[in-house]
């Protein structure tokens, strides 16, 4: 084992870690917000909106992320409207394109996960809320959303880990995150195995941290399922 090489590789890769983390957190944030919107449309009961949401979910879940990313990165610039709009300085940026396409894609998957969570809300609990006079946004905010989120959490954790892996695709539109840098190191040194191991380790640690955080969240949201422990109440 060449520890000098391994450690210098590790240092180089970790320098790219902030880029990976920015890609990840921005796309989770925007993707999550978009997913809420799509979910709302999907369950709105208005045919036009739910039809649009259905089509959105079908398209973004049914095609590879890479082709979506290339469509955003190469395709948008083709249109004069966009090229000469105030948005162009933004959309010219690879980072913006990568986040945009990651967020658009994860929104499709996440919307479907959220919808599953909503379907798991017992009708009786909604009835009970209505019977005390709750309706509309209050009903959603106080009753439906908390229960649905708890149900959706395990699937959402999986989706978040998948998103961490998906950030690697940004390297193909010239954003130098961990996988992109790893690829560059491989083609410079031809020491594929060592570079792979270092990069893989970084991702596995990230996944581990994400899953721990999600478990913690799940635990703190499931107080109602644990035996009553007086005195533990914060």
């Amino acid at each position: 084992m060449d520890f000098a090489f391994l450690s210098s590789t590790m240092v180089t890769l970790i320098r790219a870690l902030p880029t990976t983390l920015v890609l990840f957190s921005l796309s989770i944030l925007f993707g999550g917000m978009l997913a809420l919107l799509i979910t709302a449309m999907r369950v709105s009961g208005i045919r036009l909106l739910s039809g649009f949401a259905r089509a959105y979910i079908f398209v973004f879940r049914g095609s590879p992320l890479l082709i979506q990313m290339f469509l955003v990165f190469y395709g948008l610039g083709q249109f004069g409207v966009i090229r000469y709009s105030f948005l162009w300085p933004f959309l010219r940026e690879p980072m913006v394109c990568a986040v945009l396409s990651l967020a658009l894609c994860t929104a499709g998957y996440t919307a479907e996960i959220f919808r599953g969570g909503i379907r798991a809300v017992p009708a009786k609990e909604i009835e009970a809320a209505r019977s005390v006079g709750m309706s509309g946004f209050l009903l959603v905010r106080r009753i439906i959303a908390p229960i649905a989120f708890r149900h959706a959490l395990p699937a959402y954790s999986t989706e978040i880990v998948l998103m961490m892996k998906s950030t690697a695709l940004a390297s193909l539109v010239t954003v130098w995150e961990v996988t992109g840098v790893a690829q560059r190191l491989i083609s410079q040194t031809y020491r594929t195995m060592e570079v792979f191991l270092c990069a893989a380790l970084i991702y596995l640690v990230l996944n581990f941290l994400i899953l721990q955080a999600m478990n913690l969240l799940e635990y703190s949201l499931s107080r109602h399922r644990r035996p009553f422990a007086p005195g533990l109440r914060a």
Binding site: V161, K165, S166, T167, A168, L169, S171, L172, T179, A182, Q183, I186, S187, Y190, T192, M193, F196, A199, A200, Y203, L204, N207
Partner: peptide, 21 residues
């Protein structure tokens, strides 16, 4: 754990470049 947790692109690089060397 490894092959579900590491980016697919990285695994393709591993097999393509590693396989060639």
């Amino acid at each position: 754990t490894v092959f579900r947790g590491v980016p697919e692109l990285l695994i393709i690089y591993l097999i393509y470049f590693g396989g060639s060397s």
